[in-house]
């Protein structure tokens, strides 16, 4: 474990806490894409198949349970909770995310580390996570003004993978057999997708103005 990875995990956890705070405190999920939340639940469920077979550390197991539990809880809340689901922007959240799932699964069948059930689903989850934010970014552009908590949620979600890239660089130089090129390349694509959001987020922070994404 190195400082970049720990900071990355904490930032990821922070993004989930901010999202939970927004939904719980405002009893509203306006501006949040249910499709992105469903994609993230799928990412965690397919990535942590080894949850009960490989024990890495207490930290690793606890964090996996937190990520799986929180993502499922958020999807449940946005679908079933009568107050929250009323504020869902269903007519704006129309990204066809099933295509993302199909494309990522196809890619995982072609590019993976080993042709085993677990490795293919792991590669699938890595590719899917890279594009999972697309429905959310599209929804932000369509819904115009972005409330602070939603903006912070997306910011932390983008920042965590950028910290993981630093972690992979660090591990590449400090460990002999370290090669995570699937996660690395996918992580670079993932972080790049946030580039324009980061730009407008920085502008709004500098001008102390409302975050506005151009339509």
């Amino acid at each position: 474990m190195n400082i970049f990875r720990l900071a990355g995990d904490m930032t990821h956890l922070m993004s989930i806490l901010v999202l939970l705070l927004k939904i719980y405190a405002t009893k509203s999920c306006s501006g949040i894409s249910l499709k992105t939340q469903e994609l993230y639940a799928l990412v965690f469920l397919t990535r942590y198949l080894d949850l009960f077979t490989d024990f890495i550390s207490v930290y690793n197991t606890v964090m996996k349970l937190v990520f799986i539990g929180s993502s499922l809880a958020i999807v449940w809340c946005m679908r079933m909770h009568r107050t929250v689901k009323r504020s869902y922007d269903g007519q704006l959240d129309t990204f066809r995310h099933y295509f993302l799932v199909a494309a990522c699964f196809l890619s995982a069948l072609i590019v993976h580390e080993k042709f085993t059930f677990q490795e293919i689903f792991w590669a699938f989850s890595i590719y899917l996570e890279a594009v999972a934010i697309l429905p959310q970014l599209v929804l932000l552009q369509r819904s115009g003004n972005v409330d602070n908590l939603t903006g912070q949620y997306v910011f932390f979600l983008g920042a965590y993978r950028a910290l993981y890239i630093l972690n992979w660089i660090y591990r590449y130089f400090t460990e002999q057999h370290f090669s995570r090129w699937i996660a690395c390349i996918s992580g670079l694509v993932q972080t790049a997708l946030y580039a324009d959001f980061f730009y407008y987020y920085f502008i709004s922070w500098k001008n102390n103005s409302k975050l506005q994404l151009p339509a």
Partner: peptide, 10 residues
């Protein structure tokens, strides 16, 4: 043989 690098990252 290098054993399968366990997925120690989240």
């Amino acid at each position: 043989v290098q054993d399968q690098v366990s997925k120690d990252e989240l």
